[in-house]
Write a protein that binds this DNA or RNA. Structure first.
Length: 938
RNA sequence: GCCAGGGUGGUGGAAUUGGUAGACACGCAGGACUUAAAAUCCUGUGGGCAGAAAUGCCUGUACGGGUUCGAUUCCCGUCCCUGGUACCA
């Protein structure tokens, strides 16, 4: 009987769906295992062969774990809110809901064809109100909590109010935006609006004014991880910096815990490193620089008088990691967006400063990055006093100081910081070297190395000694303190878009007011136009009745990462209307044991999700501190493009080997009409009308195409659809081939030509079972020979260890070797082949299910047991000969084949080399490798 | 610039702790079966030299050094590639 994969795969996929073979429930009698894929955004283009790579790897792991007796949770869903559907809606007028549903249907049919063992009863969609109810719920919780630095966790804001009423905010140590201190008495006398404004500074989800990434083309703000090199990650539009009032999440409060808990995770070092850099912890000190006698004459009158909310702080606080260099501070620099700019600009400099700031505002982020090494800046007119030298130093304003990091102001030490150096050289400022023997005539000396000089009490100390001493002195003088700083910033949580979760917030007399939990979900209203209004308001302003009892709802929606931050929890209990996840389900499934997905989420989703989980942990809703225990990053599958070469000004195409003899243009050609880089000329002529009359210059009667590795995309004509591979070779072949291509973590180009090899393997495997009369299914009951047992048990061991190490490509090779060996032995024994079927079933489930069934099993192979490895069957024809240890020299000898243990020892002892190296020492170990090499360890 | 990870045949890629480099597969070449094609099977396949052949020898894991009886593996230097980051004080 032939291997009819199309028929087999269709039949078993139907069987699995009908019997809910992969449905999972809580089962206390079995250990749990949670395998999760990063759920896809269902784009209009559908899946190409690159997308399922990670899904196949995790599916193999899931099926393997089931065979090992685990209760495996392996769900799938859709990250269905997002920009592309909305951009498409703006262009075509199609409602995003409709296109999203169509795309999901297409994804589902493509996924189903590959034979995944997902529990589809647990599917989630982020755009479903039953789902986003819980996204909104988490937002309300964040709104109703603040971060207490003393207990290092989130606590209810109602408790904070009680503290304020009792003792004001003097003893409160919170992660918060800048707040003035107040007494209990003052608090109690504040108006509702004032109280609301103050509390907003403490909330974990808060409305606050900051510099945001504004993308005019998308009409929305973006989070830091959604911007790369000054362009939006989605769409590649330019981004600029803008000060705006936006919803934000106080992720920065969790920076320390996000960093520390990385140690407990089984993630790749590269990924942990990325998160560490993104969080960016640095140790240093904060220090206040007195402004030189804030001389009222040099300060603008308006600022002096603008003291309605208390005394304004003219003195500038800075952050530095090099407190030891304070004797070398010859000027200070403020970020252009800093509040101090307005305060410290003198009348004389006002015009120059305003011009400079206007200039900066005009630049996009991209332009700023491109001109990184161009020095710009302006003098504010004010001076500060160096607290250690007493010297008067000018205060400058420059874009090289960032408002979002530290305090938005720096002390500049040109001798020992390359940026300060460039600035000092450009504006002719003083440079004072502080390290003995360093040469700062050409460049700064940035290394934390050497012995201090020109530094008062620090003279003679090394840099490493000087840093803590300087900080100590700063603290003693009461002008600053030790400080840990993080690069991680709060996440911008508003998007001026339609296709996202609405905020459960309305504005009562302008005060942001949360809905009650019982009012959730607040459903997204249906609208017709998706563009901003003529007054520049977000699309939700088009909605009628978008208000609560006349008070308007928030017009922004939540960003893409909102819905994906807790989806792994929802899968545990997807139909629960009372809770995000029940306590029972959470305590059983706990967290994700294996998470598979791309590195592109390193600084976005994987930070937000960890933050979200920790927040819910603080509130007692989840039991684990971390959501994803082990994480594997699958590599990207790139496209392999083919080219033809047209001679310029003609319709003649020249084969790749001869193209250098002509002046040609390189043209992408559809990879689906190229086989082994040979062009199907007839198909090419039909491909596009302009090629109908094409002529060809061939080599050896064939047209050879050129090739290159590029991104898989329609415009390069290199997209390979998994559906067509399934139709031609079957899903099992596709699964095996994707694994066989190379390690899961590695990026590699897709090249269909190698697929025949694994397909051939499956056919050979199939044939082992059809040895009866007329090629019918037949397995012998005969006992297996030692040789056959060795083949099997070597394979069991290899597959077992390989799967755990995620080394699927070598596993597939091991299967090929085993099948070739069994084929050569003519083995058709039940003892051997039935365990083989079980072993292969995670990789190629359809064919194995079929063979398992033909062998008389009525239950799915999913419920079979992984065969047990017995070492005694696999002992190699080699031995170790242990002798007493007396040294560590190892060497090898060439000896004839087929020596017994005694003969080998004898030969070793008789050899000249042994005599040479032995030299009074004794032999520790002799290793005979099959063949003729002997290692002798002395 | 900084951080991380890489560089092995024509191609994708193997190689426990340093121990037969190139498993497995593609491709290619030759052969068998077939009227023919497809399918299937067999043989060869890093480079070089010698030999009629079995075979033998030399060389070879980006480049240059080092440690070692022995290095794809460890150390130092150089070049190149990929990913992350981009004035983070």
């Amino acid at each position: 009987m032939d291997y009819n994969f199309n028929e087999i795969e269709k039949r078993w996929q139907h069987y699995w769906a009908k019997n809910k073979t992969f449905a999972t429930g809580i089962d206390a009698s079995k250990p749990k295992f949670y395998v999760l894929d990063m759920f896809p955004y269902p784009s209009g283009a559908g899946l190409h062969v690159g997308h399922p790579l990670g899904y196949i790897a995790s599916d193999i792991y899931s099926r393997y774990k089931r065979l090992k007796g685990f209760n495996v949770l392996h769900p799938m869903g859709y990250d269905a809110f997002g920009l592309p559907a909305e951009q498409y809606a703006i262009q075509t007028g199609q409602h995003p809901k409709k296109t999203t549903e169509e795309n999901i249907a297409r994804y589902r049919s493509q996924l189903d064809r590959i034979g995944f063992s997902f529990d589809w009863d647990r599917e989630v969609r982020t755009c479903d109100p039953h789902y986003y109810k819980w996204t909104q719920w988490a937002f309300l919780k964040m709104f109703a909590h603040w971060y207490n630095n003393k207990t290092d966790k989130a606590e209810p804001i109602t408790e904070l109010i009680k503290i304020f009423e009792r003792e004001g905010n003097i003893n409160v140590d919170a992660a918060c935006s800048d707040v003035k201190s107040f007494t209990a008495q003052e608090w109690n006398s504040f108006s509702e609006r004032e109280k609301s404004d103050i509390l907003m500074n403490y909330r974990i989800a808060y409305l606050g004014e900051t510099t945001v990434n504004w993308c005019p083309d998308l009409g929305s703000v973006l989070a830091n991880d959604e911007v790369k090199e000054g362009l939006s990650v989605r769409g590649g539009y330019p981004v600029e910096q803008k000060k705006m009032k936006q919803w934000q999440l106080r992720v920065s409060a969790y920076a320390g815990r996000l960093l520390n808990d990385l140690d407990s995770l089984e993630w790749s070092d590269a990924l942990k490193e990325m998160q560490k850099n993104w969080i960016g912890k640095s140790y240093g000190a904060e220090m206040v620089f007195q402004m030189e006698n804030p001389n009222p004459a040099t300060i603008l009158e308006s600022d002096i008088n603008a003291t309605a909310d208390g005394p304004r702080e003219y003195n500038v606080k800075i952050f530095t990691t090099r407190a030891d260099t304070v004797f070398g501070v010859t000027f200070m620099v403020l970020a252009p967006e800093s509040d101090w700019v307005e305060l410290l600009t003198t009348k004389e400099q006002k015009q120059a400063v305003e011009e400079y700031i206007a200039e900066i505002k005009k630049k996009t982020e991209r332009e700023r990055i491109a001109q990184t090494h161009k020095v710009t800046g302006v003098f504010s007119g004010s001076y500060a006093v160096n607290p250690f030298t007493g010297e008067k130093v000018p205060v400058w304003i420059s874009e090289y100081v960032l408002s979002g990091y530290g305090t938005g102001a720096i002390m500049a030490v040109p001798a020992h910081d390359s940026r300060d150096y460039a600035f000092a050289k450009h504006f002719n400022l003083k440079i004072v070297p502080l390290i003995e023997g360093c040469d700062v005539s050409e460049e700064s000396f940035d290394a934390k190395d050497g012995v201090m000089c020109n530094s008062g009490f620090l003279n003679g100390k090394t840099v490493k000694e000087a840093i803590p001493l300087a900080i100590e002195e700063v603290e003693k003088r009461g002008i600053g303190s030790r400080k840990v700083n993080y690069r991680l910033r709060d996440a911008t949580f508003s998007r001026q878009r339609y296709w996202g979760e609405p905020f459960p917030i309305y504005y009562k007399d302008g005060i942001p007011t949360p809905l009650d939990e019982s009012e959730l979900p607040l459903e997204l209203p249906v609208i017709e136009t998706f563009k901003p209004t003529s007054t520049g308001e977000p699309p939700l302003a088009h909605a009628t009745n978008w208000n609560k009892e006349g008070y308007p709802y928030e017009l922004s929606t939540m960003p893409g990462f909102a819905g994906s931050s807790a989806y792994y929890l929802r899968y545990m209990d997807p139909h629960n209307e009372e809770a995000l996840v029940s306590r029972e389900a959470d305590e059983y499934w706990r967290n994700v044991d294996l998470y598979v997905g791309g590195t592109e989420h390193a600084t976005g989703h994987l930070i937000y999700s960890r933050f979200w989980n920790k927040f819910l942990y603080d509130l007692g809703y989840v039991v684990e501190k971390e959501p994803f225990k082990k994480l594997v990053n699958q590599g990207m599958i790139q496209g392999r493009s083919n080219f033809v070469y047209r001679i310029k000004g003609s319709n003649t195409f020249v084969s790749a080997g001869l193209k250098d003899k002509y002046d040609t243009t390189e043209i992408h050609v559809d990879v689906n009409i190229v086989y082994n880089d040979r062009l199907d000329i007839e198909a090419f002529k039909k491909w596009q009308p302009e090629f109908q009359t094409a002529d060809f210059i061939l080599e050896d009667g064939e047209y050879i195409c050129g090739w290159a590795v590029e991104k898989m995309s329609k415009s390069m004509y290199n997209v390979v659809n998994p559906d067509s591979i399934c139709a031609q070779y079957g899903a099992d072949t596709l699964r095996l081939y994707e694994m066989f291509l190379g390690p899961v973590e590695m990026s590699k180009p897709w090249d269909t030509k190698g697929i025949d090899g694994v397909h051939r393997f499956l056919k050979k495997f199939w044939r082992l079972f059809f040895t009866g009369k007329d090629g019918e299914f037949f397995l012998s009951d005969e006992k297996a020979t030692p040789q056959e047992l060795k083949v099997l048990h070597k394979l069991i061991n290899k597959v077992d260890t390989d799967i755990q190490a995620f080394s699927y490509n070598t596993s597939v090779s091991a299967f090929m070797i085993a099948v070739n060996e069994l084929g050569a032995l003519g083995c058709n024994k039940k003892d051997i082949l039935i365990p083989m079927v079980i072993l292969l079933s995670p990789f190629a489930p359809h064919i194995c299910e079929e063979l398992w069934n033909l062998a008389g099993n009525t239950e799915s192979i999913t419920y079979a047991t992984f065969p047990e490895y017995k070492e005694e069957y696999t002992i190699e024809n080699s031995f170790e000969y242990p002798v007493s240890f007396n040294g560590k020299v190892r060497f090898k000898l060439n000896l004839p084949n087929q020596l017994s243990q005694e003969e080998a020892l004898e030969a070793v002892m008789a050899s000249d080399q042994t005599a040479k190296w032995l030299d009074g020492k004794s032999i520790r170990k002799i290793i005979v490798v099959p063949g003729r090499i002997i290692n002798v360890v002395i």
